[in-house]
Design a protein around this nucleic acid. Sequence first.
DNA 1: CAGTATCCCTCAAGATACTG
DNA 2: CAGTATCTTGAGGGATACTG
Lengths: 148, 148
Amino acid sequence: MNKRNDLGTEPCPVARSISVVGDRWSLLLVRDAFDGVCRFSDFQRSLGVARNILAERLRRLVDAGILETRPGSNGGAHQEYVLTAQGQSLFPVVVALRQWGERHLFEQGEPHSELVEKSTGQPLHFMAPQAADGRPISPGDTEVRKLA
Amino acid sequence: MNKRNDLGTEPCPVARSISVVGDRWSLLLVRDAFDGVCRFSDFQRSLGVARNILAERLRRLVDAGILETRPGSNGGAHQEYVLTAQGQSLFPVVVALRQWGERHLFEQGEPHSELVEKSTGQPLHFMAPQAADGRPISPGDTEVRKLA
DNA sequence: CAGTATCCCTCAAGATACTG
DNA sequence: CAGTATCTTGAGGGATACTG
């Protein structure tokens, strides 16, 4: 039934999210934006993606309300791409992917970049779903209630 | 520099994770697996994906150590696909995508499926990164330390 | 520098027929 | 039912030349 791109109308929030940021580049652009990257050529150098693709992805992220453009902080003519509030709320997604990758996609002792708290220099605590009272919740404790 | 598929060798854990589960179907299969789906035709009906694509994706997820096959719980000939421990540890990723989608990709009052704790029936608490002492951490409080 | 405009090509994905 | 085999299509993406 899924012809091509109708994930965006599915009733499942996971499917809709994937329809917006579930491609090869979008979340990497968001990651770079969290890391302070905001200019076209810096994204381009960071990812090595073709310029036309980069332009289209940035446009899509702006259209989706994840990035917005600004006139450029210095007096220069170039504009900047910065995360909106909605884009910043992708932080848990990026952190979750990062933590999973750190645990399962690197060999023992293989170096990788790490996300730390600026003020303490400490890596982030492992992020896990929890109940309203703070108890950690494992997958088996949950179920999906349709169309709540 | 990124020719085609060399995301899997990047030093950034986010990029590596995306190289494994960053396509249109993988995380939806994982979501379904969390939801108890374990048979080929059930995945197929749930996603509407073509059978050859489904077969290849399942194989890739098995190769990646995210799913494993079992002889089938009843006496039947069919095998089942179940999450490994590594696959179960994708739970925060799926939950993060779900929560972001719920907040930003549905209209006010538009119904969507919801992830609740079985024992209480309550939706999960909002999941956010935090420091080792439990303080919530926002994106601006963090920085990436290269090759730690 | 920050894109746009083309051209081309590969691969993901769909459709369908077939098999143990 | 659980796939495999084959064919076709189209979108995603790369390379490069060009523009304000």
